[in-house]
């Protein structure tokens, strides 16, 4: 079982959280100018890496706030969690 460190609440059990997918996907600003390919890339295409992955998590049964985590998708080890808007840590950082 995971223990996940919420940036606001500290270490909590994984069952309190839900994963909300890949982080740092910015909604395009001038959406009326987007081509179908650009829409598809924003809506559907995902990096889905094998290794370090930046993703959004929601502390659903806690403070109900979103934050970002840097997690390895093979070992499932979370190397860092950080608040929305903060600079993501580099991938090797513990």
């Amino acid at each position: 079982m995971f223990l996940i460190e919420c940036p606001w609440c500290g270490l909590r059990d994984e069952t309190e959280f839900s994963c909300a997918g890949e982080a740092h996907i910015a909604r395009p600003l001038e959406t009326e100018k987007l081509s179908d390919e650009e829409w598809a890339d924003y809506l559907f295409m995902r990096s889905n890496p094998k290794g370090a992955h930046r993703e959004q998590w929601l502390h659903a049964a806690g403070c109900r706030r979103y934050f970002n985590a840097l997690r390895d998708t093979v070992t499932y080890k979370i190397s860092a969690t950080y608040k929305i808007g903060e600079t993501p840590p580099s991938e090797g950082k513990k």
Partner: peptide, 8 residues
């Protein structure tokens, strides 16, 4: 399925 991405 588990809610998060994983290759493990």
């Amino acid at each position: 399925i588990d809610g998060y991405n994983g290759y493990g």
